[in-house]
Amino acid sequence: MSESLDALELRIAELRAQVRRAVKARDNTLARSLRGDLRRAEQAWDRAVGAGEPESPQEREAPLLPVREQVHQALALLGVPSAVRMIVAVNDAFFSGALRGPQLTSLRRDEERSFRGDPYARPYYLCAALTDRLSPARGLLADSTWEPERRVLGPLSPRVDFLVSAMRVADRLVRMTDPPQGARRLLRRMAQNIPGAVEGLAPADPETTIRAARAELEVHHAADVAQRAEVAARAGRQLSDAERLFGAVALSTLRGAS
């Protein structure tokens, strides 16, 4: 590379001399075309000098996607109702990394307003996950195109969803040839809370993580599916369209104990 740089510098010096001679000879047409060559040579020199430096993280291209698209992207990867922190972490690890928590605070409210104003006008809405009281779960975002069972929560669901999202993050890593450092760290952070997924301080292996998560998932799966189906059926019976996506205001607690 230094050779080509040397050659470029020689060429630039040569071109400058030619430009000077052309200007002195008042040959404007030649001077203009020589100046064009000089500019190109200088640009090539700039590029050659810059090529050796590692690209700084700030220079990652600014995302052209709006915030809700970015959130949707992260949710599609995770595949389960997720907390804002998790969505930001996934965006950071796999996508633009430009998403910030505070940008998401009013997202659900805006989506709800949009839906109530003009139902089903958008291909998808970022909606709430419903608790077993059919109220919106705090801090979780979901995708309205998911089937109702995936958007409701039973008592076991937070754990099940955590295991599923860990599996999906690991699965994504398996399919990447050169996974980014941040994505490996995210997996490591998730894997250390799954029994048998990591040993000590070693980096997490995606395949092992998937196996470990699946093993634990099998323990909870049947019960969780039944509980979720029950809540989803109840939501389907009792709630309006908007409430089914964004949750109902809780008016009563459990019956039986007062």
Binding site: L156, R159, Q192, N193, P195
Partner: peptide
């Protein structure tokens, strides 16, 4: 976060909490 994932790991180590016991209820949801 994540349904008390960290806490679960700690309690499984500390109190030998069985793997099946992972329920989580956010009382504030009402």
């Amino acid at each position: 976060e994540n349904g008390c994932a960290e806490l679960l790991r700690l309690l499984r180590e500390l109190l030998k909490l069985p793997v099946a016991e992972v329920g989580y209820q956010d009382v504030e949801s009402v």
